[in-house]
Design a protein around this nucleic acid. Structure first.
Lengths: 232, 232
DNA sequence: AAAATGTTAATTGTTGACAAAATATGGTGC
DNA sequence: GCACCATATTTTGTCAACAATTAACATTTT
């Protein structure tokens, strides 16, 4: 069990790793607002750890896109503009498209024997959930749908990058906007993706996935235009 | 000049930021080998800073893909497998393809008046450099070519992610392999990309860019197959 | 009243000490 | 020679103190 030396999992994460997780949660869930300053002393007091530990946690978020580190001034929750969100969507479309193309190839080659059944079941559940107007449940299934395809692509790095992009998008928020908009259209797009993947049609899957994300951005900006409220 | 408050650039980067840069350089240039442990005390002595500063620098590399942080054991230069390199190439192809498509659209829309001239000039220089068998110069021009297109895409996040992917690829090395292999083919592929961009042909540019990266991976694995030497 | 200057307080950045965990070393038994 | 155990050493993780920089506030000048 120790024979792989370096890869043995430690029993417990370090305090700094736990603090990072908590800061990330606070940012993604909105407890820390975009542009807000991360005060080391306040955080260390709140979490019952030393300020140095908080510093380490904050530094570990340096490349995450969630915070901006400014020398001698501290760390601030990143303020994302709509232009940046557009860029994130563009990247998200490219990566999700690539992943769906890869998933389709792997399904076609018999490398992913369970993926098809999984996404079809998820799709069925999304339809049922939509019929019951249960948007929280739909949201969870939607995330699962994307996760399944990203896992099916067999490229863990792609999933990691995609998940980080989604996290970054949480920085741009509008109060009171519901998460789901035009679910019927969204489900229809999922169906097109599933159909292409089922037939091992990589190019069709890539295009359908890209269209789906692009369309999602269109739905997103439609919501924003309909709600001109200033940021929190 | 002070009126933008938070965005005013500090006069000097912190020591931890400088230490991070040095560690990154050591990794990318091979002074720190894949799998090698980053000893905090050694590094702090070597660089003339305290161990805490080295820790902060190392933590800031947590998400970079260049190192693995293991609780209670320390930080290790990430060991990249060929499978991981394949995944990185796949992502690289998706992002570069997306960037070239965006660049083509922007050229077609007149949003990038200088890009076309810049990449054509670069291409001309690559041809001349190849004719003189100056591979170091060719390498630099090749990097510039990719940079110009990524900048022309108008998506800074894409460029950042692409550059990080390239950095990660440096972790997988084979001693004695020359960087450039089949330059004539590579230049031909660059020409196809430039042609598509010049005509504002987004889909053509995307496909040409993807093919170029995919082909680059093929050239890469060909080199590896021809040199079965174990990692240094 | 607004701008400039000076002082004080708060915060960030760095360092070194201590505690905990991992690793290395030496001795013993089979 | 190998496996196991105890001990010593090294390294990592955390904490607190000090130094440097920035922000906030008060006073003076225009």
């Amino acid at each position: 069990m120790m024979n792989e030396g370096k890869t043995f999992g430690p029993r417990r994460a370090t305090l700094a790793v736990e603090v990072r997780g908590e800061i990330e949660r606070m940012i993604v869930e909105g407890d820390l607002a975009a542009g807000e300053k991360l005060n080391e002393l306040s955080l260390s007091t709140m979490m019952g750890v030393s300020r140095g530990t908080v510093r380490e946690a904050i530094r570990s978020l340096a490349d995450s896109g969630l915070i901006d580190l400014i020398a001698n001034r501290g760390a601030f929750v990143h303020e994302t503009t709509l232009e940046e969100v557009r860029n994130l969507y563009e990247l998200r479309g490219a990566i999700f498209g690539m992943a769906c193309a890869a998933a389709a190839r792997r399904v076609g080659a018999g490398q992913e024997p369970r993926l098809l059944a999984q996404i079809e079941r998820n799709l069925e559940q999304m339809r049922a959930t939509h019929a019951k107007a249960d948007s929280a449940r739909y949201y969870a299934l939607n995330i699962e749908f994307h996760d399944l395809l990203l896992q099916g692509a067999g490229n863990p790095k792609a999933k990691m990058m995609y998940d980080n992009l989604v996290k970054e998008m949480h920085l741009f928020r509008r109060r009171g906007l519901s998460i789901a908009n035009n679910i019927a259209r969204s489900i229809k797009e999922h169906e097109v993706i599933v159909h292409a993947v089922a037939h091992g049609n990589a190019e069709g899957a890539r295009q359908a996935a890209l269209d789906h994300i692009t369309s999602g951005f269109g739905r997103y900006t439609t919501m924003i235009d309909a709600d001109p409220a200033a940021t929190g």
